[in-house]
Structure formats: C-alpha cells, structure tokens
Write a protein that binds this DNA or RNA. Structure first.
Length: 222
DNA sequence: TAGGCCATCTGGTCCT
DNA sequence: AGGACCAGATGGCCTA
C-alpha cells in the first residue's frame, strides 16, 4: 500500500479553534428532537458513487437487500453477537427465532442508515477543497465536517466581500487606487478554511491541497 | 504498542 | 408497532 498522507489530528484542531473532545457534549444532543426525522436531504446520497466506500463495502458484504444480511456482516458484529450469546435483551416476549429475525432486520436497517450517512459524507468530501488523490488519505468524518464548516464560512465571507466590491464599483469609484483591505477579496481579510493557525507541518501539508491556498501562511499552490 | 478511525451491534428514546 | 435516530461498547485495521 502506498504511503498515505493525512491531516494530522492537530490539523483539524486548527480548523475549529473551539474544538476539543469535550466540545462534543453528546448529552446535549440527546432528546433534542429538533428537525423532522425520517429522511435525509438528498435522498441518501444516491448521486455519489458507491464504490468510494472502500471499507464498508468490503467488510459488510453490502448485500443489497435486508434479507439475511445479518451475519455475513463480518467478524466485528458477528463476534459481538456471539459474545452476547443470544440477544441479551430478551425483554421482547418473542420466540428466539422471531427475536433474532427482528434483531437482524433492525441491524440491517441501522447498517443502511450508516451507509447512507457515509455516502453523504463522501458527497461532502467531493465538494470541499482538499486533494482528491489516491495518494492522499481520505478525510476523516470529523475532519470532513470541520473543513466543510470552515469552507462554508469562507464562501460566505467571499460572497460578502464581492457584494461590497460591487457596491463600491457601483458608486462610480475606480480601481486606480488600491481597495481598502476590507473590500479586497484577495487581501489579508480573506478567510481560510484552516483559520488563523498555521498547520503543523505547514507548508508541506498545505501543498497537498489542490484548490486555492488553504492556509494563509503558505499561499503557494502546489 | 498506543492511539485514531471506523463498522457494526445493541438498547433506549422519540415520532408517526 | 415499526421506523428513525442516538450513543455506548466492541473489535479490526492502520499509522506513528
């Protein structure tokens, strides 16, 4: 296998200055019930190439249907199941066979749900600027979300800068004099997905990106 | 070998 | 009741 480059953990800490493991207050989300359930915007990422899902597709067998997809699911889940003996719940007053089949169907549903989630993440990866090259390791889930968030912020700010620029030009001004820094979309006020902090290993890591410079400490493109 | 990331199973909770 | 969502647990793979 080729050597894979990746964003170090510190890299996406830099993406989100406020990030820390504790920032993921899991409990805070629980029971919130915000937003409708039951459908994923985009219909489960059907527009993404499923082949991109390397590991999950391999390890789970990805049998199209829910039929009997329970225990080809591999040693991971299978082992867990074995360990548990028989569905430790037992709370459901059903016969073991029914019970098992119900469990299998629930597992399959959950697996599909997670695959849809991963498809959506792949879709997100495909539209945010980082190197989509075989030699570059796929962004982790958390890195994908943090980078996407910063990219959105960057786009929003770029749009705002452009609006100001248009307004400025509409006032009959010329560009013969330099724009004020706040009106210069390419000036110091530009926002970078990596925020203000230099990346560890900068500029090496920044050169892994194919889009515009992502770190203000190294504006050189590869 | 430790740590990061991931897939999967599982039980609980909420919604339709 | 059934489905969706969530978070914890577990174990595998990979990299530093």
């Amino acid at each position: 296998m080729a050597e894979l480059k990746s964003l170090g953990g510190e890299a996406y800490l830099a993406l989100a200055p406020g990030y820390s493991p504790s920032a993921f207050a899991y409990g805070a989300v629980r029971g919130g019930g915000e937003g409708p359930r039951g459908s994923y915007p985009g219909g489960g990422g059907t527009d993404f190439h499923p082949g991109a899902l390397g590991k999950s597709a391999e390890s789970s067998g990805e049998q199209s249907g829910d039929e009997e997809d329970g225990f080809e699911a591999g040693e991971k889940g299978g082992a867990a199941f074995e360990r548990e003996g028989k569905l430790k719940g037992g709370a459901l007053g059903k016969k073991p066979k029914e019970q098992r089949s119900l469990r299998l169907s629930i597992n399959a549903r959950e697996r599909r749900r997670m695959h849809d989630l991963n498809d959506a993440l792949d879709g997100l990866r495909s539209v945010i600027p980082y190197a989509h090259s075989p030699s570059v390791r796929k962004l982790s889930k958390i890195a994908t979300l943090l980078l996407a968030k910063n990219y959105i912020l960057m786009q929003a700010q770029a749009l705002e800068e452009m609006r100001r620029l248009v307004a400025y030009l509409n006032q009959g001004q010329t560009l013969s004099t330099p724009l004020p820094a706040t009106l210069n979309p390419f000036g110091q006020s530009a926002v970078y997905p990596f925020g203000g902090a230099a990346l560890p290993g900068c500029p090496e890591k920044c050169t892994a990106f194919t889009g515009a410079a992502l770190c203000k400490h190294c504006n050189d493109k590869p």
